[in-house]
């Protein structure tokens, strides 16, 4: 069962065609990660799937239904989106930020229901932020701040969570914390995760499916083991990688610039 499908999607951004005739399928209940070099169109694709950009051609299907035929207020109950790290909202407290996650369920002037409060507490607990709930975002570390944004997405209580490079600017430990939290959401709560990542080893370790994009076009997609191969990495990133296996997942030990021909 696919939660997202794109059919011959073209997207222009800043008057340039950044995605060309892209058709992908993203299965429900799994972690699917988009990889590819900078400027390949990962973010553009993420934003298109999230209904933040309109394709100039082609169709995006959410749960087998054309996404443009759904109301944005209904889409917000099906998928939560965490855009690339932004510096807004730093004056808010963690709890205030997480409360925004309940907006799709609230009528304009209604106050919060008991369910809203429960979901907010539960999201804070999931992201281990109970002790930080009254702290302002500006006083938190990068990792804590990112967990707060993820908690907002958790509170939104959607089957699908979309994250655009959730570990950018974080140090090693905090990157791991964020990835483990995402993995837990997938395993324990069966949420579908769609994200873009730079770190190939994280992508390999934590994902079920990978979608590799180069110059706005689909390069290769499928289970991690099928995508992370020496040949594919040469084609996608122009690198020659030494790949070993760890816990039955491919890991890149080291890599060099690939000098040969790409296929």
């Amino acid at each position: 069962m696919d939660i997202i499908e794109t059919k011959d999607v073209c997207v222009s951004y800043d008057k340039k065609l950044t995605i060309r005739d892209l058709s992908i399928r993203i299965p429900k209940g799994q972690i699917t990660t988009l990889i590819g070099p900078n400027g390949c169109g990962k973010s553009t694709l993420i934003r298109t799937i999230a209904h933040l950009l309109k394709p100039s051609k082609g169709t995006v299907f959410l749960d087998s239904q054309n996404i443009t035929q759904k109301k944005i207020s209904d889409i917000a109950k099906e998928m939560a989106v965490l855009p690339q790290t932004n510096n807004l909202a730093n004056d808010l407290t963690v709890q205030e930020l997480v409360t925004f996650g309940r907006i799709p369920y609230r009528k304009r002037f209604a106050s919060m229901s008991n369910l809203d409060h429960e979901k907010i507490d539960w999201a804070l607990e999931k992201a281990s932020l109970q002790d930080l709930r009254t702290r302002r975002l500006s006083t938190l570390s990068g990792g804590q701040r990112q967990r707060a944004w993820i908690a907002m997405a958790i509170a939104q209580d959607t089957d699908t969570i979309i994250l655009d490079e959730p570990t950018t600017y974080l140090d090693l430990t905090h990157q791991l914390d964020v990835m483990l939290l995402i993995k837990e959401l997938n395993e324990k709560e069966h949420r579908t995760i769609i994200m873009a990542l730079h770190d190939l080893n994280h992508a390999s370790r934590f994902s079920d499916q990978l979608i590799a994009i180069k110059k706005g076009q689909l390069q290769v997609s499928g289970p991690v083991q099928k995508v992370i191969t020496q040949q594919n990495l040469r084609n996608i990133f122009d690198i020659d990688a030494k790949i070993i296996e760890d816990n039955s997942k491919p890991m890149i030990l080291t890599y060099d610039r690939w000098r040969g021909e790409t296929v």
């Binding site: 944005i72 209904d74 917000a76 925004f100 907006i103």
Partner: peptide, 9 residues
């Protein structure tokens, strides 16, 4: 982007 993904115009 965040506002739109929360379903508000």
């Amino acid at each position: 982007d965040s506002i739109k993904s929360l379903g508000r115009n």
